[in-house]
Simulated scan of single mutants.
Amino acid sequence: MIFGRLDNVDLEKATLPDAVLEGLQFLNETDLANASEGRIDIDGDRIFASVQDYTTGPQEEKRPESHIRYLDIQYIVSGREMIGVAPLSTTPPAAEDLSGERDLLFYDQVGEESSLVLSAGSYAVFYPWDVHRPGCAVGETGEAVRKVVVKIRM
């Protein structure tokens, strides 16, 4: 997992993988506040983005997930959300496997989960070995979030 802010990318680019930099460049050069919800193709199925608008909710109502073929760059355009993060190596096997059709595995339990708060301008990179629980409220009240998830094939 990598955590950062888009306004620091120039300072951090020497330490980031090329594919992640390509995704961050898209985020930096695109008017995401006015983009339509849904998929945006960047490089076909190799790199694409999904613009999402939703309200965060209680952590216990959100399902931990991981992916096999893609990494995620989850970038917050507006609002705040908490994302739970746990190592795949300490997490029991997936409860629901949708990896064939959606590259998505869901878990009922996670091991050693930590909390990461993302606010506008911040991003997190989740690799296939990072179980993550997105969409959780910061505090007790949900808030509106605009998020862009860039998917990059591994």
Rank of each mutant, 00 (worst) to 15 (best):
T90E: 15
I42Q: 03
P64E: 05
G79L: 06
I40R: 12
V77Q: 05
L27F: 02
Y123A: 10
L16H: 12
T90W: 00
I152Q: 06
F48L: 10
L21D: 01
G111D: 07
I73N: 06
R69H: 14
Q59M: 14
L104H: 06
K147P: 00
K151M: 00
D103P: 11
I76A: 06
G111A: 09
K147W: 00
D18Q: 14
I68D: 13
R69Y: 03
Q74S: 02
L24Q: 07
H67A: 04
R46M: 02
F26E: 12
R80P: 01
P128V: 02
E96C: 08
R102N: 08
G84I: 02
L98G: 11
M1G: 12
A94P: 13
T56D: 01
E12P: 00
A49E: 06
M154V: 12
Y107T: 04
A124N: 07
L118S: 07
N28D: 15
T15C: 05
G142K: 01
G4H: 10
D41I: 02
D41C: 03
D41Q: 11
K151A: 03
R5Q: 13
K13A: 05
Q109I: 00
D43G: 00
A124K: 05
F48N: 11
A144L: 07
Y70I: 07
E143D: 06
P58D: 14
E140L: 11
E96T: 14
A120P: 01
A120L: 04
V117K: 02
R63I: 12
L105M: 14
P134A: 09
M154Q: 13
R46F: 05
E140C: 07
V149Q: 08
D53E: 13
R153T: 01
V149N: 11
A49L: 12
V138W: 00
L88R: 13
F26I: 07
V85N: 04
Y127T: 09
E22L: 10
Q109C: 02
P134Q: 12
L98I: 05
E29D: 15
T141G: 04
D103E: 08
Q25H: 15
K62W: 06
I152P: 05
W129A: 13
N28K: 15
Y70H: 09
L24K: 06
D10L: 13
A120F: 04
V131R: 06
E22M: 10
E65W: 01
P17R: 02
A120I: 00
I40L: 13
L104A: 07
H132F: 04
L32M: 09
V51N: 07
D108K: 12
A33W: 02
P134S: 12
A94L: 08
Y123P: 09
T55M: 08
M154E: 14
V20P: 06
E143F: 00
Q109W: 03
D97L: 05
F26A: 10
D18S: 14
R146T: 01
L24S: 06
S114P: 03
D97C: 06
V85T: 10
D7I: 07
S114L: 11
T56N: 03
G4T: 07
K147N: 01
V85L: 15
E22C: 11
G121L: 08
Q52S: 12
C136T: 11
T55R: 11
M1W: 04
E29K: 15
G38R: 09
T91S: 12
T90V: 02
P64Y: 03
M1L: 10
K13E: 13
S66V: 02
E81I: 09
E22S: 14
L6H: 10
P87Q: 01
A49D: 08
R153C: 11
T55L: 02
